[in-house]
Structures are given as C-alpha cells and as structure tokens.
C-alpha cells in the first residue's frame, strides 16, 4: 500500500519534472518570438517568397521599437516604429524578389548583415552603451498582464494552476501571438485572399491567367509577414526583455524557418512546433546543470542542436514528408 503510494508520488514527481509551471511559462515566453517569425514566414513562403531575412527583421524591429520607446517614453509608439522598420525591410525584400526577379536568398542574406550592422552602428552612436538601448521602464515598457480571474481560477487544480501560473502574467504580445494562429488559419484557409495566396505559391501562372496580379498578391503577403515578424522583434526587446542588446535575435529567425518546415507550412502545426522548440530552449536553461540518472548531464549543446536535427530528419522525409510550396523561391515573370 505504502509502496504503491510512493510509486504514484514518484510518477507525479517525474511528470512534474517535465511539466511544471515555471518550465511551461518559460516555454511560452521563449516560443513567442519564434511563433511570430514562423507565421511571418508562413505568409511569405505560402506566397512563393523565401525569406531567410526573418532573423534580420526580428533584430531590426527589436532595435527600432526599443530605441523609439526609450526616445519617446511610450511603448506603443516604439511598437509602431519597430513594425514600420520591419515592413520597410520586407518591402525591400519584395522589391528585389518580386519586382526585380532577384535571388531571394541573397536578398535575405543582405538583410541579415544589414540588421547586425545597422543596429550595432546606430545603437552605439545614439546611446553610447555598447550597442544596448537604455533600459525600458514605466510607460516605455510593456508589462505583464494578469488575465481576468487568474487568482480565483488558479484554485482549480492543474487547469487553474496552468491558467494562473503559465498563461496569465505575460506581456500582451504573447497573447497576440497566440491569437495570430487561429487568425492565420482563418485567413489562409477561409478567405478569398488566403486561397489566392496558396495558389500563387503553387501555380502563379494560374493565378495570373485568372486575371489576378501576382506581384500585388505577393507584396500583400510580404506586408503581413513584415508586420508579424516585426511584432516578434517588439516582444523581444520590450516584453520578454526590457531593452535592446546586440544580436539579441540570437538565431530565432532561423529557428522559425526550421519550425515552419517542421510544421509543413501549416498554421496550427506552426504553433506546436514553435512550442516544442521553445520547450527545448526552456529545458536547456532550466536543467543545464542537472545530473540525470543513467545519462548524467544533458549538454546544452545537444538541446541547442535538437530543433535543427529534428528539422533535417523531417526534411529528409524520414518522418512524414515536408513538401514546400511548389513555386517557392522562383521569381515569376509573365513571358515564361
């Protein structure tokens, strides 16, 4: 009897180790910028435009929003600036990829270099803090929001605790990101614009024949993509952290591309894959120096590499098959 109870406790401890509020909250926080960037990538790739410049746009938006929030003392103005900067570079990518039929990968690489250079160069020149922006506080900062009834619902076991300790108490952008998932699914699958978007990523010539402008549709997709990845950057520097630091995007844009493939370019699956990758990162932070039975310490390098290893396995078609939109990466011109 006693032994059985002990066994049950052991089981609960074991589960608690992997699923506890602190770990899940950190998962939610860490996956939010990736989710924004991943949905941004979904819009652009579904329209046939590869964007490896997501990483750079995250960084640029993070810088733009933190710098402007610090300058004006208003977090919302900062947000608009961050998103504006991101849209600007999305349009630059569009000009190269759509209007000039340029190589989309090269344009993405250029944006990533420019992002590191511009944020570092302007940040150091403007704020004289080694590339950091001043710490954001008060009105210039997006603070944590307590969801309604968090305390009373929190008394319900499990679900209540999840509501109070994980879901509640995040910056607004976490909720916006979560809401963007059903919104994206709705736009892509249920609206005329979304269906055209899917078509233009598969068979642009068919869309063209139907009398719909391929460039216009693709620019619209890039506009949405710019807004979404911009919000990811805003959350990075104002929400997740309280200020900009050099290279703070820390490969999250690339991880979003991996998550997009892992999700096979679908909205809900994007949420799950971003959560999974966020969980790996949270796990690495929390248990970096923990000695596990049998295997001992899990090196942080292993957790770092895990999302990319999984993505390669999926890409190779070893679990399911990730098939990209057919026209992705190809410039479209009428004469072909």
């Amino acid at each position: 009897m006693d032994k059985q109870a002990e066994g049950e406790n052991g089981m609960i401890d074991f589960l608690y180790f992997f699923i506890n509020p602190a770990l899940l909250k950190s998962t939610l926080v860490l996956s939010t910028p990736i989710l924004f960037a991943c949905l941004a990538g979904l819009f652009s790739e579904r329209a046939g435009i590869v964007d490896i410049g997501l990483e750079g746009k995250l960084l640029l938006a993070a810088f733009g929003s933190a710098a402007f929030a610090a300058y004006t003392g208003n977090a919302w103005l900062g947000m608009f600036m961050g998103v504006f900067v991101s849209i600007l570079f999305s349009m630059l990518h569009g000009f190269s990829a759509i209007t000039l039929h340029g190589n989309q990968l090269i344009s993405g690489v250029a944006v990533n270099f420019l992002a590191v250079g511009l944020t570092g160069f302007l940040g150091k020149a403007w704020f004289h803090q080694g590339g950091n922006t001043p710490a954001l506080s008060g009105n210039s900062r997006f603070t944590a929001i307590d969801l309604p009834f968090a305390e009373s619902i929190g008394k319900i076991p499990f679900i209540g605790a999840f509501y109070e300790d994980v879901l509640s108490g995040n910056a607004i952008w976490v909720y916006v990101a979560l809401l963007c998932v059903p919104l994206t699914a709705f736009i892509v699958y249920k609206t005329r614009f979304g269906l055209r978007l899917l078509a233009v990523g598969e068979e642009p010539s068919a869309v063209d024949t139907a009398g719909i402008s391929v460039p216009k549709l693709r620019y619209k997709a890039l506009l949405i993509s710019g807004i979404l990845v911009g919000l990811g950057g805003v959350y990075l520097s104002n929400g997740m952290l309280a200020g900009f630091g050099p290279k703070m995007s820390a490969e999250r844009g690339y991880m979003a591309l991996a998550a997009l493939i892992f999700a096979k370019w679908r909205p809900w699956q994007s949420l799950w894959s971003c959560m999974l990758f966020g969980y790996f990162a949270a796990f690495a932070i929390r248990y970096g120096s923990y000695d596990f039975p049998v295997i001992g310490r899990v090196p942080s390098q292993f957790m770092d590499a895990l999302p990319y290893i999984l993505t390669i396995i999926v890409l190779g078609g070893f679990i399911g098959k990730a098939i990209a939109p057919k026209a992705v990466g190809e410039p479209y011109s009428k004469e072909h």
Partner: peptide
C-alpha cells in the same frame, strides 16, 4: 557589417 550588407544587396539582390 553595414557595408557587407549593402554590397550583397546592390551587387547581388538588386
């Protein structure tokens, strides 16, 4: 890094 980005942009992408 700014120059590198601009060179890649103008020589390559644009």
């Amino acid at each position: 890094d700014v120059i590198k980005g601009l060179v890649i942009l103008f020589v390559g992408a644009l």
